[in-house]
């Protein structure tokens, strides 16, 4: 049984999973703290980003992929960033009725 577990590499993904669960519990506990709304959103999104990075790197095996996969990811995230920044640079200066 031990050999089977060794041959299919159970340990590493399980460690990643445990870290992900701990981060989930952390973010739930942190949400109970009374801070300003923007701080709460930043904390929640920061923890979510760490979790996302773990899933991308270890579950989706980006760490074993050639460089071009990481370049694609970078381009996608950069495009998202531009879209969000441009939208908010517009909406922040609008007068909402």
């Amino acid at each position: 049984m031990k050999d089977i577990f060794k041959s299919i590499n159970v340990l590493n993904p399980s460690i990643v999973f445990i870290v992900l669960v701990l981060l989930t519990i952390t973010t739930v506990l942190l949400s109970g703290i009374d801070v300003s709304d923007s701080t709460a959103v930043i904390i929640a999104l920061a923890v979510a980003s760490i979790k996302a990075a773990l899933v991308l790197t270890y579950f989706m095996h980006l760490n074993h992929e050639p460089l071009v996969f990481k370049v694609f990811l970078g381009v996608a995230f950069f495009t998202l960033l531009v879209i969000f920044l441009l939208t908010f640079s517009d909406y922040s200066f609008r007068e909402m009725s």
Binding site: T27, S31, V41, A44, L45, A48, A52, V55, F59, M60
Partner: peptide, 17 residues
Amino acid sequence: HLVDLIWIFLFPLYYLV
């Protein structure tokens, strides 16, 4: 995993903040 990834962001935005 992508479906999981999206939920990772949905969860805090709806349930936590």
